[in-house]
Amino acid sequence: MSISLTVNGSPHQVDVDPATPLLYVLRDDLALNGAKYGCGLGQCGSCTVVMDGEAVLSCMVPVMLVEGREITTIEGLGTIDEPGPLQQAFIELQAAQCGYCIPGMMMSAHALLRRKPRPSDAEIREALTTNLCRCGTHMRILAAIRRAGELMQAASLPEADEGRAG
């Protein structure tokens, strides 16, 4: 069955079994690496992507439900040459060990920061309830998300200033 979906702003047409989890479509059909298979059961969060602004577990999302919806993966947050603020924060604070869980963490954080640019520590922990890390990078992940909030705010300030000037 042919299904159309929008990933990181680009439309795609894939020919797959409609019950295929989005995760496999992203990795297999669209050759994206960010979303990772971790458990396939919705327990670990390494497959997290953002759909219409909210974090969802792509291993639990049949692709047929994605038609017409806006999906963002970590590839949509910036590139290795021009990393986005969330990516910059994780690089700056060296918030990875093996790094396998990190894209999922970042997508959960992305959804949170969209909704709440300066989240409290409790809100960050709450948003990451479903995201597991095995290397024990938790302290750095928390710090990187706080830092990303700052970077995003800093990035939006000049615009605001311009707005006032204009």
């Binding site: 690496n33 290795i80 990516q87 690089i91 990875a96 790094g99 894209p103």
Partner: peptide, 9 residues
């Protein structure tokens, strides 16, 4: 290795 890991390389 971190930049590649956080940008989906």
């Amino acid at each position: 290795d971190i930049p590649a890991k956080v940008t989906g390389q």
